[in-house]
């Protein structure tokens, strides 16, 4: 009889729960990890790509666009980067919505959308699907790393229920408990962007399932202020840049070296 309350998002169970929302959250906790750290002078996002295979053609990801492979980290507006965990197809439609919302704000106010406002717009939409309309809620959690003149650098998290909250450092997706306790131990207030980058990479290397840490498994992005124009500058790393960064942080594990003893 439990299924009576499982099949529709619009109906509470006798215990007062919305099962579909809880299932959506569960789906996210199996998705690739996305990690964000807020620093004094910037925000860092990193994401683990789960589905990769030798035959997947990544030629486009290496060259085109604004960087990244376009699987987990996206530019939402010139002042906001989004990291997604959950169903990629659901995420694509949310990202499209976010970009439209940001451009609409720019059109009406001639000003970049404040980060919290953007998070609110997406949450209004996500909340809607817990109450009416579709058959299921969005199976997506997002991290928003952004900057606006009201509250400077910010990091937000939103979940399928339409809740959102601001964080100094947080993590969604697989192993988020482990990552969060690591962040709790190592995070310091007034951390600088350089230290935030290495903190993110260190935590990522500990929580990721795979033994190798490289551009084929990792997406990485940083939002800072341009030293000259004082405008927010979003940088989503290209695969080669990620490898170079891992090398410089001493975290690059050589796949061949690991393979050799096994042979």
């Amino acid at each position: 009889m439990a299924r009576r309350y499982d099949s529709r998002t619009t109906i509470f169970s006798p215990e007062g729960r919305l099962y579909q929302i809880e299932y959506a959250m569960e789906a996210i906790s199996h998705a690739g990890t996305v990690l964000g750290v807020l620093a004094k002078d910037g925000v860092v996002l990193a994401a683990e790509k789960k589905v990769t295979g030798k035959l997947l053609d990544l030629a486009g990801a290496k060259e085109g666009g604004y960087g990244g492979s376009g699987e987990k980290i996206f530019l939402l507006n010139s002042n906001v980067i989004g990291g997604v965990a959950g169903l990629t197809a659901d995420a694509n439609s949310l990202i499209n919505y976010a970009r439209t919302a940001a451009q609409k704000h720019l059109l009406t106010y001639n000003d970049d959308i404040p980060v919290e406002v953007l998070a609110q717009r997406l949450c209004d939409m996500k909340q809607g699907y817990t109450q009416f309309g579709g058959l299921r809620p969005f199976g997506v959690s997002l991290l928003y790393a952004g900057y606006d003149p009201h509250y400077q650098f910010q990091l937000y998290h939103s979940d399928p229920s339409g809740n959102y909250s601001g964080w100094k450092a947080t993590c969604i997706g697989a192993n988020n408990g482990t990552a969060q306790s690591l962040l709790k131990q190592e995070y310091k207030d007034d951390i600088e962007i350089k230290d935030a980058i290495s903190l993110v990479l260190r935590v990522m290397s500990k929580t990721m399932d795979s033994t190798t840490l490289g551009s084929e498994k990792l997406e990485f992005a940083v939002l800072t202020l341009d030293p000259e124009t004082k405008a927010p500058k979003a940088k989503i790393y290209r695969p080669a840049e990620i490898d170079a960064l891992l090398q410089s942080e001493g975290l690059k594990k050589d796949e061949d070296a690991e393979m050799k003893p096994a042979q």
Partner: peptide, 17 residues
């Protein structure tokens, strides 16, 4: 709604529109 005011430039753009 947002707990802070629109900046003058944003308000002016909205009014113009």
């Amino acid at each position: 709604r947002h707990h802070y005011s629109l900046r003058p430039s944003a308000a002016a753009s909205w009014v113009r529109r």
